[in-house]
């Protein structure tokens, strides 16, 4: 256990209409459990899970949010510092697909990431175990393409189908996002180094004079 090395924490937000299966997906992924009796999420809950991405162990903090837009006033607090946003819809409920745009926009407004157009989203079409299906894969993929090629997964939280793969992709995207943000921040210490290197040289100049 190396306590000295700083752990990487990835913050992931799950958004989508009420009862598309956000809580179920999170619990399936983290606890490998499914229950028919999850209660409506109030505010937000979250779980964390350690994942290995490209030989690197990171902690993924998954925020499960309330599906009703009434709780969006909490958005600012919850979305802040997110590294990836997971949009979920129910493949059997067309309205949950239609509202994806507004969830995405809402997130971008509330979280106001540095580069909104490059911020990583992942789309999950959940409940593929159920019939009848209302949204085809093709339609979902088209939507993803229109949004700067969002990765798309079809999942079943109930059967654990594709959940692991989806969250691994989420983790990868989140990590990439965080690294790019770190690069931005890293400009700052560089600048200090510059002044440091200048200082001795100026001192040297004064000494020479």
């Amino acid at each position: 256990m190396s306590s000295s090395r700083k752990k990487v924490l990835l913050k992931v937000i799950i958004l989508g209409e009420s009862s598309v299966g956000k809580t179920s997906l999170m619990n399936q992924y983290v606890n490998r459990k499914f229950s028919n009796q999850y209660k409506a999420t109030i505010g937000a809950d979250f779980l964390t899970k350690e994942v290995t991405v490209d030989d690197r162990t990171v902690t993924m903090q998954i925020w499960d949010t309330a599906g009703q837009e009434r709780f969006q006033s909490l958005g600012v607090a919850f979305y802040r510092g997110a590294d990836c946003c997971v949009l979920v819809f129910d493949v059997t409920a067309p309205n949950t697909f239609k509202s994806l745009d507004s969830w995405r926009d809402e997130f971008l407004i509330q979280a106001s990431p540095r580069e909104p157009e490059n911020f990583p989203f992942v789309l999950l079409g959940n409940k593929v175990d159920l019939e009848p299906r209302a949204i085809s894969s093709k339609r979902a993929q088209q939507w993803c393409q229109s949004k700067n090629n969002i990765p798309y997964f079809e999942t079943s939280a109930k059967e654990g189908l594709n959940v692991e793969q989806a969250f691994l992709a989420i983790a990868k995207n989140a990590l990439a996002q965080q690294n790019s943000t770190f690069d931005l921040y890293n400009e700052f210490p560089d600048q200090i180094k510059l002044t440091n290197t200048q200082k001795p040289s100026s001192n040297g100049d004064s000494c020479a004079c």
Binding site: K39, I42, G43, A44, L74, A77, F78
Partner: peptide, 16 residues
């Protein structure tokens, strides 16, 4: 200190 983890407590008067 934002205490957001208490959100449900406050909203539902600790019911859950």
């Amino acid at each position: 200190d934002d205490l957001l983890f208490c959100y449900r407590w406050l909203l539902l008067e600790m019911k859950r």
